[in-house]
Design a binder for these strands. Sequence first.
DNA 1: GAATTAATTAAACGTTCGTTTTATTAATTT
DNA 2: AAATTAATAAAACGAACGTTTAATTAATTC
Lengths: 214, 214
Amino acid sequence: MARTAGSDGGRTEAAIRDAAVQLIARHGYEAVTMRQLAAEVGVQAAALYRYFPNKEDLLHSLMREHMEELATTWENARPANDDPVARLTSFVANHIRFHVERRHATHVSNMELRSLSRDNLTSILKLRTAYEKELRTILRDGADAGLLEVDDTGLTAMAIIQMITGVIVWFRPDERLSVDEVTATYLAMTMRLTGAKTNAEDRHVRQDAELRAR
Amino acid sequence: MARTAGSDGGRTEAAIRDAAVQLIARHGYEAVTMRQLAAEVGVQAAALYRYFPNKEDLLHSLMREHMEELATTWENARPANDDPVARLTSFVANHIRFHVERRHATHVSNMELRSLSRDNLTSILKLRTAYEKELRTILRDGADAGLLEVDDTGLTAMAIIQMITGVIVWFRPDERLSVDEVTATYLAMTMRLTGAKTNAEDRHVRQDAELRAR
DNA sequence: GAATTAATTAAACGTTCGTTTTATTAATTT
DNA sequence: AAATTAATAAAACGAACGTTTAATTAATTC
């Protein structure tokens, strides 16, 4: 046999990407074989090489797609106003939603970096660094404006990212909590962690100052 | 050739464990071959099978050792007094120190769980869950005593653990910050995140209350 | 110092891996 | 309807994998 009836390159490639993300997330890149992936797609292994030159390029392509989607999603979610606390809120909420909705792809992008060769690794890390810089900028702006208490911008950014990305480790939809509830709790923790002056607290701080001024 | 001069079972096993942790942390369990590991130790691949029945049992043994050391270290570091804030401080400081000192073993224990078969996985998760429960207990005790502000004990425990374990992702000794400096910053973030009433803040809160009472 | 045990090498086993080559059929274009 | 291009199957490649078996030497015990 050869070309099958109804076969379509676009659909096949999408099916390969989909199956690859699932399989690699579950078993790890090295453990997944091209034959296993092909079987999942319902095709012979050789057919995969029409879409990706080799196994590593497939992995790299999945990661690149994930990171570029993340950047795009954040660009669209970023609020127009430049209040640092509002931007921090948007960042955390967007980050959690994006990653929860892409648990498998996130696992792949975070855990399989070591399987990339130099150049492929560099290109992914570049995208990741650019994204992380967004958070550092928010934190610095907030600290400069006196709206956040941040000892060390870099450390705090890493701490927050680890914390909110970690949601995917334990979160399962259809269980006790919804994404919105989890996001609310994590937002509250982020705000306390950064000593954010919310409107309410702000009023409180001002009240205290007024009391003392008397 | 056969037995080599000066060979010693104890030393060889230790060398295997050491090399395995380094190699698996860097390349991943599936990517490391028994021949590669043997070469690193300076021995033939067959010699490894005198110490571990197979590749997976080697991995499981490394993880078990790591988790048991973690439990032991915490037992020794746990403060005698039962002030929740003091216990939280000890937990975070001990956790960061332990993991920073064992970056590679931590990577193995956290990232290679999917390579374990059912029974081996269960035994490791049991140890991990027991350890995490320590933190949940501290948080609940603190919340019950009114010393911590914790919305959700489970979520907060996971958030803190992700945050402080994440140190190993970016921390490198001999760079800008020492372990103690990093620990101090993370402790400050943890205390804010949990709304901990330290002595200083406690006094501050009492002062505010007094001011208002006038 | 002979017998035994511990530690290791060397070689081989069958299996599976990523990838390539070649042939074949479906769909599209002319 | 013939020619061309796209999508796949089938088979084969050498290399590498985890593991086993058998032989060999060092260290220890008797």
